[in-house]
């Protein structure tokens, strides 16, 4: 493998991806900001003022990490799945296949593009939340690690979804029927300590709960679950998805006939 060539190819994919989501910022960056600000106003402001503190912090403050995480998850996933599937649909993915771009570089390039969008949206929501409530970050390393690994995981998941997708419906099914419910039940708006024991146990099978809870630990130092376990779990999921994507690409699934 010619390292220099692959490096340039990687830069090209990332430049193309960043160029794409910044060019259509009104479709990619603005909507999550509007959505999350509505959550802040309605749940945090109107309803939250009537809810008592959770683990020593106001409800408005409590939901901030979860809302940022929602933005990171949905945008890193959506960026990769829509961009890569569109490339498949319009056949311009062939531009990369006929060139000497390795599978690893294609995966890395799209994943990196998705992560950048997810993290940029997260950063924008973080900045916007300062208008609603001031905060300090208790554990910056956990804060960064959970944000980056979550963006990576969902960018990888978006790529896998795009590989399998055969029509545009296939790229919305996962988001609508799996990702969105898991995110809402992932402890964004509540602590699982408030749930009956049965639902607490069920909730622990939801991977998004570990991300939201770990990220909240990075923010405020409060948690329902072990954040180190959460990080390890995230890392393991990223490795599994990377290997699965590369295996599917090597077989040519969804890319070659």
């Amino acid at each position: 493998m010619n390292f220099q060539r692959q490096k340039i190819a990687l830069e090209t994919i990332v430049r193309k991806e960043v160029g794409r989501f910044t060019r259509i910022w009104a479709q990619t960056l603005l909507p999550p900001l509007i959505n999350q600000s509505l959550y802040f106003i309605i749940f945090g402001g109107f309803i939250g003022s009537q809810i008592s503190e959770i683990k020593g912090i106001s409800y408005m403050s409590y939901i901030i990490p979860g809302l940022i995480m929602m933005g990171i998850i949905s945008n890193s996933f959506a960026n990769v799945v829509s961009s890569f599937f569109s490339s498949k649909f319009m056949h311009n993915v062939e531009e990369m296949i006929v060139a000497s771009v390795s599978n690893e570089v294609i995966l890395l390039g799209y994943t990196f593009g998705g992560m950048l969008r997810g993290l940029l949206v997260g950063l924008l929501i973080l900045g916007m939340s300062l208008f609603f409530v001031p905060f300090t970050i208790a554990h910056p390393l956990y804060f960064v690690a959970f944000a980056v690994l979550t963006a990576l995981l969902f960018a990888l998941a978006g790529f896998l979804n795009a590989l399998f997708a055969k029509k545009f419906d296939d790229i919305s099914i996962f988001q609508t029927f799996i990702l969105t419910p898991l995110t809402y039940f992932g402890g964004v708006f509540y602590s699982i300590d408030h749930l009956p024991p049965f639902w607490q146990t069920i909730s622990k099978f939801n991977p998004i709960l570990y991300m939201v809870d770990g990220f909240r630990y990075g923010f405020y130092g409060i948690n329902d679950l072990n954040p180190a376990f959460g990080l390890l779990f995230l890392l393991l999921c990223c490795i599994v998805l990377t290997l699965l994507n590369l295996h599917m690409m090597k077989k040519g699934y969804g890319l070659k006939t």
Binding site: E94, E95, V101
Partner: peptide
């Protein structure tokens, strides 16, 4: 390869299509 079907991104600018392809081939 010059394929039979038009397989570039139709929303992309002409110059970008060619420059991007060069990048895929590792051309600085």
């Amino acid at each position: 390869l010059v394929p039979q079907e038009f397989n570039f991104n139709i929303f992309e600018k002409v110059e970008n299509i060619v420059v991007t392809q060069a990048g895929y081939y590792g051309v600085p």
